[in-house]
Design a protein around this nucleic acid. Sequence first.
RNA 1: GCCGAGGUAGCUCAGUGGCAGAGCAGCCGCCUUGUAAGCGGCAGGUCGUGGGUUCAAUCCCCACCCUCGGCUCCA
Length: 659
Amino acid sequence: MSGSALIDVRLPDGSSKQITEGSNALDVAAAIGSRLAKAAVAAVVNDHEADLTAPLANGDRVSIITADSDAGRHVLRHSTAHVLAQAVLQLFPGAKFTIGPAIEDGFYYDFDLPGGRTFTDEDLVAISERMKQIVDADQPFVRSELSPKEALHVFADQPYKCEIIQRVTAGAADDGDAGEVGGGDSVSVYRNSDTFVDLCRGPHVPSTGRLGHFALMKVAGAYWRGNEKGPMLQRIYGTAWESKAALQEHLVRLEEAEKRDHRKLATEMDLLSFPSELGGGLAVWHPKGAIVRKLMEDYSRERHQNGGYQFVYSPHLANAQLFETSGHLHFYKDGMYPPMEMDNGTYYPKPMNCPMHCLIYRDRQRSYRELPLRLFELGTVYRYERAGTLHGLLRIRGFTQDDSHIFCTQEQLAEEIASLLDFVLSVLRRFGFDDFSYKLSTRNKEKSVGSDEIWEKATAALRSALERLGVQYTIGEGDAAFYGPKIDVDVRDAIGRKWQLSTIQADFQLPERFGLEYVGADNQRHRPIMLHRALFGSIERFFGVLLEHYGGSFPTWLAPVQVRILPVTTAHEAHAASLVDRLAKDCFRVDTIAADEQLGKRIRAAKLERVPYVLVVGDDDVKAGTVGVNPRGGEVQRDTPFETFVERLRVDVLEGSGR
RNA sequence: GCCGAGGUAGCUCAGUGGCAGAGCAGCCGCCUUGUAAGCGGCAGGUCGUGGGUUCAAUCCCCACCCUCGGCUCCA
């Protein structure tokens, strides 16, 4: 019998394992250990992910994917998405299902419900219950390969599935489709009961009993194939984990993130607001928010001054002609505020500062000796973001860019980009970010202008700057702006979330459009290259990111109130006031609260406001010239000499701001 | 812009086709306080805006504005 023949498979540690022919990866896992078999969700066979139940061949290289790895969770989530679809199809007769991939931290599945019905929160509860039943039934996931014809028959009443099958077999599949079915001449499907079958490339867990630590999170609309002219589907988002504890931790992380929500903190801390009378996406800054913003801006100005930038200002409005020249009206008219008709022409609020900076450059003849010429402006721009996209400070209609435009020669380009990157990272580090990632965005043929040669040159310059820095980067194929390629810098915040902040963009177009020139050493006229560079990006957005990063606890150099002095009783108020004066003279931000309430209550209020230092002064302190120091996140120290505290404060502020 | 959920006091949130509710914050007293909520009182609302249905609308219907979760978009 061939079944009793032995074959060898190779394991990741280089060793071999002898198994009987016809065995699968699950058997291998079991032979290694029962714990591994229990944690296994799929396998990698000869560098390809495969089901645990797929038979192995002699000489196969096998490694086991366990549920607690990224790849394993991906499988769990994808399998859970299938169970979600199964439950929905059972509970909503006539529902059409579309695609349901695993995503970061979870999965989703998109449905088209009969009669335009939508899911309610109660539906989610019922669906979740049904999913648990499917998990309890421990249904096996059984893979099979079908010919396109067979597949079309199986999914005859599922038009979206048929569309996917047809696209895949016509070779027109995009990545999403291939993820569903694999691709090639046959399509793969997984059946996990008599009544439920779905297109899928796999792999899947061996049976639904391996799932169960999931939660359905929310329901949302989503366009079929992401096309806003296509049908609007109903999407259910869920999350799934390898254990109850891991699921719980994830939910706690979400709560943590919610506590840090900048909109919530901005209200609680009285930093800024979005009065509805102002209109959507427009903010007003309250004193406590404004002081932090001012400190950020002051710091930015100081760094730019030292970094060889020249400061400029430009108006908020410009004649339409300017944006015709720059190309903004052609490429971004829909994203601009509507025009104002005035007696001598049409005016638009500016969506960017670069056209103005080009005018400054062009105002007189420039010499190569002036280059690189670095212009810098905190320039407020207005963009007509669509109503549904507004999001606190992170997506806003009026905002201020820390915008700089650098004009340089082609020879200077690579060097300038490299030093720009250094500059950007050095400033970001000062705000507590030290985990960066980089993306190089390349040309989108349909949405761009300029010759291939110029694009290639600019892209190469950006790439060489990244390589000089010696960092990893990803490529954003077709993500560039219309005028040139760019490098985006993402940061990871204190709780591991990624934010896109800085951008460096090469631009050969605007110099062309504005006819910018310089006179070279050869006494000939040449065209400069322009670099766009936003560091914070938008001050508003950066402020929002910082607020979430610090969870509202700004470092002392940025804190709206750095020191609060609390007299124990009314008898100590005058003393407290004298300490306030003393610190205010040294430009520290300090206040005091009279002893109308009990000390504990006033301390609590200061803590909720996240004041870095609370000083308590009572009889002992008045006599001895000391203070009780209650630092944010630290231990109380009674009887600290006041001057000792001042020195500590000074060091804290200076170190924070790097001055 | 599209799908869904919302908008009640400064904040967080109850509530009802028939005089609008709480806690915190605020103000006024009392307490004189040593490291995260002392006690009492007062005040505070065109129930997002505008229409409609009704004897009566904060509640039901319509439109608009704004917010939230997504989708799409993001120079």
